Amino acid sequence: MDQRISFVTLAVADVALSEQFYCGGLGWTPQMYVEGEVLMIRVGAHVVLSLWDRAAFEAEVGPIAGGAAGASGVPPVTLAHNVRTREEVDAILRRARELGAGPVTAGQEREWGGYTGYFADPDGYRWEIAYNPGEIGDLVLP
C-alpha cells in the first residue's frame, strides 16, 4: 500500500448546507455535487474532501459513534486509499487482515460503479480501499 491518502470523507447531516458553507461561503470549487448525496472538493493535487450524507455513510461504513442515544460505532470520518484495479483492493484488504486489522470488510461492487472494502486501524478509524473508475478516481491517483 502506497503511503498516501486519496479521500478524506466526513459524514454530514445536510449535504446542501455543506455545499453552501464550503462553496458558497468559503468559495471552494466543487469537483462533484450530487444534491442530497455527496459533495466532493479537490483539496490537493491528488486529494479529495468528500462530504457524504450521514445516512448513506452509516449504511456503507456502519453506525456512527456517539450518534443517537450515544451509540457506540465508528467515527464519522473515513480515509481512502485509491488504487487502479479491483485486484489491488483485494490484495490490500488481505494484507490488512494478515496484520490483524479488524474489522475488515471484503471488496464489493458499489452502486456508483466502484469497488471498495474497508479495514479499521488499531484505534478503529476506517480506511476505505477503493477502485474508483472515472474522472474523480483518476484525479486522486498519482
Rank of each mutant, 00 (worst) to 15 (best):
M1I: 12
M1F: 10
R4M: 10
R4C: 08
F7D: 09
T9E: 10
T9N: 05
T9G: 04
A11I: 07
A11N: 06
V12N: 00
A13W: 02
D14N: 14
D14C: 07
V15L: 02
V15Y: 00
A16S: 12
L17D: 14
L17Q: 15
S18P: 01
S18R: 01
F21W: 12
Y22N: 05
C23N: 13
C23V: 11
G24E: 09
L26G: 07
G27I: 10
G27P: 05
G27W: 04
W28F: 06
W28I: 03
W28S: 01
T29V: 15
T29H: 09
P30H: 11
P30V: 07
P30E: 14
Q31I: 13
Q31E: 14
M32V: 13
V34Y: 12
V34G: 15
V34M: 14
G36N: 10
G36D: 09
E37C: 14
V38T: 11
L39N: 06
L39E: 05
M40S: 06
M40D: 08
A45E: 14
A45D: 15
A45K: 12
A45Q: 11
V47W: 00
L49Q: 10
S50R: 12
S50N: 13
S50M: 11
L51F: 02
W52N: 01
W52T: 07
R54E: 08
A56P: 05
E58C: 12
A59F: 02
E60M: 11
E60Y: 13
G62N: 04
G62Y: 04
I64E: 01
A65D: 15
A69N: 13
G70S: 08
G70C: 07
G73L: 00
V74F: 03
P75G: 05
P76A: 05
P76C: 08
P76G: 03
V77L: 12
T78E: 06
T78W: 01
T78V: 06
H81A: 02
T85F: 02
R86H: 10
E88N: 07
E88W: 05
V89Q: 01
V89C: 00
L93I: 04
L93A: 04
R94N: 10
R94W: 03
A96P: 04
A96C: 03
E98L: 01
E98F: 00
E98P: 04
G100E: 03
A106H: 07
G107R: 04
G107P: 09
E109L: 11
E109V: 12
R110L: 15
E111I: 15
E111Q: 15
E111A: 14
G113R: 10
G113C: 02
G113D: 05
G114M: 03
Y115R: 05
D123M: 09
D123F: 06
G124F: 01
Y125C: 08
Y125Q: 10
R126K: 15
W127M: 11
E128K: 02
I129P: 01
I129K: 04
I129N: 05
A130E: 07
Y131T: 06
Y131E: 06
N132E: 08
P133S: 03
G134A: 04
E135V: 14
E135R: 13
E135Q: 13
I136Q: 10
D138T: 13
L139A: 09
V140W: 01
V140P: 00
P142V: 05
P142N: 02
